[in-house]
Amino acid sequence: MDSTDALPGPCLLCASLTGTRVDQAWVCAVCGWRYGDVPDDGLPLPRVDVVYYLRFDRRVKIGTSHRPRQRLKAIRHDELLAFERGDRTLERRRHQEFASLREGGEWFTLATPLAEHITSLQSADLPWNHYARWLCEALRP
């Protein structure tokens, strides 16, 4: 039977402290990485492209990155609203979809259509938890 509890230590992939006991092994409750397995430090992490939605005041930046932590540090924002797995093709599609709300560049007014789309991407999970799961999936053979 599976049970959720504190991991013996932080997950080595996403640093979560919560895990699920499956048979005799612990699995991270956030990203699904098997506790104790060490990602190979000698290899680069797999590329996981995301479209991000950043709020600054009443505006939202829709951008993309394959290194979101590094990218988001370089952009002034109030809040990370959501991630959506996808690359520049999806980003361009979102820019076209919300073109009537464009304020300039990749910035859009946070109006009802965009807010509803962002809400559809959100769940009880934080955006970084989604990213950790996608990274874990990409690492699996």
Rank of each mutant, 00 (worst) to 15 (best):
Q70Y: 06
W26P: 14
L45Y: 14
W33I: 01
L54D: 01
R67C: 10
W26H: 05
D78Q: 12
R92I: 04
L43E: 14
R92K: 12
Y52K: 03
R59M: 07
P68S: 06
Y35V: 03
T89A: 13
Q96S: 09
G36Q: 03
D49G: 10
G32W: 00
C31P: 00
E79G: 00
R93W: 08
Y35W: 15
L81D: 11
R92C: 03
V30N: 11
L72K: 05
R34F: 08
L80Y: 05
R71S: 10
P46G: 02
D40N: 14
W33A: 05
P68Y: 05
D41P: 15
R85Y: 02
V38S: 09
G63P: 07
P68W: 09
P44R: 11
K61M: 07
F56N: 12
R59V: 00
V22M: 13
G63S: 08
L90V: 15
L90W: 00
Q70W: 02
R47T: 15
R88P: 02
T64G: 09
D41A: 15
V50F: 13
R59G: 06
R76C: 05
D23P: 04
Y35G: 08
D78V: 05
R88S: 14
V38C: 10
F56E: 12
R55D: 04
F56R: 15
H95I: 06
R58A: 13
R88E: 15
Y52R: 04
Q24E: 15
C31E: 14
S65D: 04
H95M: 06
Y53K: 02
Q96W: 06
P46C: 12
E91W: 08
R67P: 04
L80E: 07
V22E: 15
R71C: 11
R94D: 04
H95G: 12
A82L: 06
A25W: 07
V22R: 15
R21A: 11
R93H: 12
D41Q: 15
R92V: 00
P68T: 05
L45K: 06
F83P: 02
A29F: 10
R92W: 09
P44D: 03
R21W: 13
P39Y: 13
Q70F: 08
R85G: 06
P39W: 08
D57G: 01
Q96F: 00
V51I: 12
E84S: 09
L54A: 00
C28S: 11
V51M: 09
F56K: 14
R55H: 00
H95W: 13
P46E: 00
P46R: 00
I75G: 01
H77G: 03
D57A: 13
V30L: 00
R59E: 14
R93S: 15
R94F: 05
Q96I: 04
L72P: 14
R34M: 09
T64P: 00
H77D: 05
P39R: 09
D57L: 08
L43G: 07
Y53R: 06
A74Y: 04
E91R: 14
Y53W: 14
E79R: 12
R94M: 11
W26Y: 15
L90Y: 01
I75P: 06
K73R: 14
R71H: 02
D40T: 01
T64K: 07
E91P: 03
R47H: 10
